[in-house]
Design a protein around this nucleic acid. Structure first.
Lengths: 113, 113
DNA sequence: GCTATAATTCGATTATTCTGGAATTATAGA
DNA sequence: TCTATAATTCCAGAATAATCGAATTATAGC
């Protein structure tokens, strides 16, 4: 995972509704949830939920599969692991921190966020 | 760490410049860096850097101490550990995930983000 | 083809964040 | 006290994100 992807993943999770959605999906396990089930849990209007899901999708944190009329959404565990690994490697805390990494070059003008 | 704090921390890190700043501070270790040193590394205008630092401060990810004219900024490792713990506990990935947690109640109207 | 249901995209509005120049505050040293 | 330096706050404009009703697309079943 590179910095760009980490920023996208962090941004995707930095919203109460999206974090809640992601947690529901993690808790739901391998089968995930349909969009409708998620909607019942989170009580969001359809367009709003879709917008949030699109952010999570773009960040690669969830994947989905159409099953007939229903779209089943799943947490992408590998992605979350990659994010945790990124944070641990690059932003790790306390005594276990490995020094010696160079300060990253400044981000490119576009897409800092 | 509660959800509110996690959202704040994730939001603080979800920006290229702030993530870069935080990484510089982690890499700098216990002594941290002065704001001026950070400015040299990141090449940001003073007001912009201060604004970003204020976000990191509000999220509790960095702390600072005035030393004469200079303000020395340090990464708060405990906070990052708490964030990693939060993500691991609530959004953990793959086979090690502990099921059985309940889907969180929907966030309050104000301050979802 | 028709109807019903699931979910999305479209489009417009509102809210929030980002950015950075200029003015301000804080401190050190002469 | 005066000057210089460090960093901040203030403020406004630009950019981006959030929200969600209405229209649209996709699919199933008859």
């Amino acid at each position: 995972m590179d910095t760009r992807q980490a920023v996208a993943a962090l941004g995707a999770l930095s919203h109460g509704s999206r974090l809640a959605a992601y947690r529901c999906l993690v808790q739901a396990g391998r089968d995930g949830l349909s969009v409708g089930e998620l909607r019942d849990q989170l009580e969001l209007p359809p367009a709003t939920l879709t917008a949030h899901l699109n952010v999570l999708r773009a960040a690669g944190l969830v994947g989905d599969e159409r099953q007939g009329r229903v779209i089943r959404v799943r947490a992408d565990y590998a992605r979350m692991n990659a994010l945790l690994a990124y944070l641990t490697e690059n932003c790790c805390a306390g005594d276990a921190c490995t020094p010696g990494r160079s300060c990253p070059p400044k981000p490119t003008r576009r897409n800092k966020r």
